[in-house]
Amino acid sequence: MGGVHATARIGARGDGRGGTSLPVLESDGPLALRRTRGAASEARVMLVGAMSGPLGGDRFAVEADVGGGARLRVGSAAATIALPGQTKEGARYEVRLTVADRGELHWLPEPLISAKGSDLSVVTRVDLDAGARLVLREEQVLGRMREEPGRLGSRLVVRIAGRVVLDQELTCGPGAPGGWDGPAVLAGHRAVGQLLLARPEFAERPMEPRIFAEHACVMPLAGPAALVTAVAPDGLRLRRVLDEALAEWDIR
């Protein structure tokens, strides 16, 4: 009763002519990767599996490794929905991203939705060289329409040139530490999201802190990166806020 164990891998390399090749594109079980049409210098990959999982007991992992001079954009075809499994054990979803100097990764998956009775821990670990560029989006929606959420734990750890610039965890739903839905943490909001932007030029000129919606702000981190944190009543309104930030940075 161990659940499904699957690891999908993407490796992107600069082809030396300004383009990006994908020497590694490994789907695994429910995690299916498809290369889609990209822009001139950028490879695009769509994660098409895992929409109706992970279930309790499942262990999913997705790894992307972007080499120097490569540009990779990864999206997903639909939201990932954490559902209750037949085991008491929780599910685990790990994302491991590495980007080398002069590499660029846009990691823009669809939201993660925590359905009633589910129990999922998501861990995202990002390792960037000093000259790497990254745009990362994370959205968590607590419950489907008017549904109580399951337990959802998420941790995001970002290292740049070996130094941790962001380490954040959030646990929501039944069994989470007290106060998660109270006025200090989510105050009844059902969607929470982050955008992380890492660029080497922020070392010289960091982004200015700014409030740009009722519950959303841009925060320069203690390192060459900035974080947008937003909470919203639902997933649609969260996406609208995060899209606004992406548009302002000219990222589509």
Partner: peptide
């Protein structure tokens, strides 16, 4: 130090900026 807890409160962070 990575073993240390990293529990965050989005509205405390956003509220502090506001």
């Amino acid at each position: 130090v990575d073993v240390l807890p990293a529990a965050s409160a989005p509205l405390l962070e956003i509220g502090a900026e506001v």
